[in-house]
Structure formats: C-alpha cells, structure tokens
C-alpha cells in the first residue's frame, strides 16, 4: 500500500454515467438530423449550424471565465444548445443571426440563471423565441436556393394543401433545418433511448396528444405528427432534462400539456 487510505462516505462505487457523457450522446443523437439538413440544404445548412454552435460555445466560455467558474465547454451542453437552436432555424437565415441567437440562448437562457442545471427553460428555445420576436421576417422566410417554398404547415393552414406523408417522414420539405426529416430525428432519439439518457414519457404523451387532438378536430393526424417541428420539439426539446419534471406522472402531464399547446396553435 503506497498511500494513506481514502475515506469517503458510501456508496463507494458509481455508475459510468456523467453529465459529459449524456450531453455528448445528445450531440451524437442529433447528428442524423444534421446530416439530413446538410443533405437537403447543402453547405448552407452546415454554415448555419457551425455559426450557432460556435456562438454557443464561445459565449459559454466567456461567461464561465467572467464568473470565474470552471471551463464547462467539455461537458458538451453548449454544443447541444447550439445544435438544437440551429435545427429550429430556417436555412436562409443570415449567419450572424444564428450566431447571435446562440449567444442569447446561452447568455439569457442559461448563464444568467447560473449555468448548467439552473435554467428554467430550454436555452435553445429561449434563443429561438428571441429571434422570432426580433426578426420575424428572417425567421419565417423558408427559401432554399432562392426559390421560396412555403412550409407544409402553412400550406395546410393557408391553402389546404397537404404534403405527401412519405416526403414528410423522409425529408425534402420546406421548413427549418431540423424539421425536414422525421426519420433522422427518430433515429437519433432511439440511440438516446437505448443509452437510457432520455425520458420516453414526455415525447409519447406529447405526440399522442397531438395525434388524438388533430384527429378529433378532423385534421390528418399522421400529417401533423411528421410536419413542422413536432418531432424535434417532442423528441429533443421537451425532453431537455433541466427544464422538464422529474416524476413519472409529471412527465406524462408535461407531455400532455405540450401536446395540447401544439394542437391549439396549429388548428
């Protein structure tokens, strides 16, 4: 025996999970959606994503430095926020806007509350809400390669045109970067589910509510499942650990409430 014996309180073994592992797994889980975005929107998507991620990481670094706290870049949570925000943005958004959105997301959405774990809302959503309020036009221009295309949801709402469900599921539709391919999102989500890093109750309750709700009001429920940001919102936003409930019942209720909101907004 070389050193003094270590004395700490029980338990003396811990699971292999860490915040870092969880956050980087979320990053991995978002990669299919990122690839889908790049596939459909080409280099444009990549630049928007990079702008948002760099903004998020940079501001996280600066804030932690100012507050004299440990550098938390490596825990991956800023990357997650940057990615999530980027996936809610339209591909045509100016890069500085994406960058700025991330700064607001981390700055206002997370750091002002004291950093990781303290935020009452999902930081990415704070960023998105801010951008929508400040730059409504930029945020709702869904142009790809100069050709403006309405999103399936607005087509449905305004003109009653339903997009082919298969297209919605696989991708190739107008909308934000992350909305394009439901299958990419589901793929990433299954990875998290497999790792045990995500609650399935919230998304199930939310998606189920939207399905039943839209069906009850005579709309095509399948269409609503795969259209718009529902998948992204249900699978990756509503399940944000920090801002969602910890009890099982709480998660059902939370998912139900979120689903109802979607139904009300859409119909």
């Amino acid at each position: 025996m070389n050193n003094e014996l270590i004395v700490t309180s029980s338990p003396h073994v811990r699971s292999q999970d860490s915040v870092k592992k969880i956050m980087w797994s979320v990053v991995i889980a978002l990669l299919p959606a990122v690839f889908a975005a790049v596939y459909f929107f080409k280099a444009r998507a990549l630049s928007v994503i990079l702008a948002a991620v760099v903004g998020a990481v940079l501001i996280e670094y600066i804030f932690q430095k100012i507050r004299n706290k440990k550098n938390t870049i490596k825990d991956g949570s800023a990357v997650v926020t940057g990615l999530l925000l980027a996936l809610t943005l339209p591909p045509s958004i100016p890069l500085w806007t994406a960058f700025f959105g991330s700064i607001v997301a981390i700055g206002l959405g997370k750091q002002v509350f004291g950093g990781i774990g303290q935020n009452p809302f999902n930081p990415a959503l704070v960023g998105r809400a801010f951008l929508t309020a400040s730059y409504p036009v930029l945020m709702t221009t869904w142009t790809v390669d100069g050709v403006s295309s309405a999103t399936p949801l607005s087509q449905m709402k305004m003109e009653g045109i339903a997009t082919d469900t298969w297209n919605l599921f696989v991708g190739q539709i107008g909308g934000s970067l992350g909305e394009t391919s439901a299958i990419a999102l589901l793929l990433g989500f299954s990875y998290l589910l497999y790792k045990g890093y995500v609650n399935w109750r919230i998304p199930l309750a939310m998606v189920g509510t939207v399905f039943l709700g839209t069906f009850a009001f005579g709309s095509d429920p399948i269409f609503h499942l795969f259209a718009g940001g529902l998948m992204l919102g249900a699978l990756f936003m509503a399940t944000d650990m920090v801002s969602s409930p910890t009890t099982k019942l709480g998660r059902w209720i939370f998912g139900l409430g979120a689903g109802l909101l979607v139904v009300i907004i859409r119909l």
């Binding site: 003396h12 073994v13 950093g115 990781i116």
Partner: peptide, 29 residues
C-alpha cells in the same frame, strides 16, 4: 483506479435518482 474522486457538478435534473430510488423518494429535491 477504482476510487476516482468525484467532483460534484450541478444537478441537471435528469431524474435518474428519482427513477432509481426504491422508496420512491425525490433524492435531488
């Protein structure tokens, strides 16, 4: 190598403790 000293970081509200507790308590809270 089995006795890593753990430095606690803030709770991320992941609810893993709530899901693990055999007495159905809310350890984090």
């Amino acid at each position: 190598d089995e006795v890593e000293e753990y430095e606690p970081s803030p709770c991320i509200n992941c609810a893993k403790c709530v899901d693990a507790c055999p007495m159905f308590l809310m350890p984090t809270q």
